[in-house]
Design a protein around this nucleic acid. Structure first.
Lengths: 198, 198
DNA sequence: TGTCCGCTTGGCAGTCACTGCCACCCGGGC
DNA sequence: GCCCGGGTGGCAGTGACTGCCAAGCGGACA
């Protein structure tokens, strides 16, 4: 997919507009009444769209909030694999997450989304499930970097390293949310990893 | 009766019997047709109980499989807190999981349950969600052990250590499932943690 | 023994997320 | 003017789950 730098295409444009409209409406309602108390019917109505069409844009209610993770996973994988061969898995993954953080435009909105996810159990479950997919995506790169100079790497070892990095990202994100977004996410991550590996 | 620890109470007994009957029926059907293709109505019918009552024993379909995690969390917390004060958080948590593994009677059934969970995304999401609760339970004990001799411990650090241990348990469990139960779970865990902290 | 009481149970109707199906509309090519 | 492909809405249905209420059942007690 890296080849086709997909142009806006006028058709995508309107699609993006509809998606954004649904998303904004939903986030407003979630903030006003809570996630569970807001029904799909209500979101569709206020966004001026049929319930049926809403499900064509977002497969599930959870995906209205957690949807964009899909694309970001690919970016993470590509970034990690693009790191210099000399980089350790830890360094490569850290670089990957650094890019992800920059990739998100509005930091205020990111905080809003993340806070909602971390305070809503079913959303957090979905979020974790998608991050599991990310782990599978970067696993090959991690395995390759761990194999440098030595024999084959047991899957457990690569899986453990990957999962640990994600666990630290999680701990850092939680602390970031708890701080109301005032703390520095990258510093929190470094402190988390230092506590583990230090 | 003599010791206050467990009161069979005759009433609990029949409850346990009903729970086991529902559980066995469900696991059989899940194995035959898959988790998603099996409906609550079908489980209730084959277990000879009304749908309404089934939901009184298991709040959700997922809890039929992931239900017993609730009680085990308390056992984990108690065990970790009961470790000698000199034990590091890593040692205390490892001891906790060791007890958990022994706590489960039938290892074959444990493998069956775990395999099902790891192969069914919504179940795995639920499972992860419950393990998050375990993390909250043991967090105080971890914090206390990290504070030994030093100043207050930032929450990120304790959360990172806890989450890392759980990540390694997860990696080990996945490898264990992949091996069909033939590998040794404790050894896999040790190897996972060594890959991270080594 | 009969009666009351608390607890469990089952059925029923309703909600909500989500899906399949089909009829409809709308812009562009011929 | 006609056709046609893709987006859209409505509608009925499924499956998980909940609230409500009436019925059963065992024990306590007179």
């Amino acid at each position: 997919m890296g080849t086709t730098a997909t142009q806006p295409s006028l058709w995508d444009r309107s699609r993006q507009a509809v998606v954004a409209s649904i998303f904004d409406t939903a986030m407003r309602l979630f903030a006003e009444q809570g996630y569970e108390a807001t029904t799909i019917a209500q979101i569709a109505k206020e966004a001026g769209i049929s319930q049926r069409s809403l499900f064509r844009y977002f497969g599930t209610k959870e995906d209205i909030v957690c949807g964009e993770q899909e694309e970001l996973g690919e970016l993470l994988r590509a970034t990690v694999e693009a790191q210099p061969a000399a980089a350790t898995p830890w360094e490569a993954l850290r670089a990957g997450f650094e890019v992800l953080m920059e990739a998100h435009g509005d930091p205020g909105q990111l905080l809003e989304i993340t806070t909602l996810i971390f305070h809503t159990p079913p959303l957090r479950a979905r979020y974790t499930q998608k991050r599991l997919r990310w782990q599978e995506l970067v696993q090959p790169a991690v395995t390759a970097r761990m194999a440098a100079g030595e024999g084959p790497v047991p899957q457990v070892r690569a899986a453990a390293v990957t999962a640990t990095v994600f666990a630290c990202v999680d701990a850092a994100t939680e602390a970031w949310v708890r701080s109301g977004g005032s703390a520095d996410l990258a510093s929190l991550y470094d402190e988390a990893l230092a506590a583990v590996r230090g």
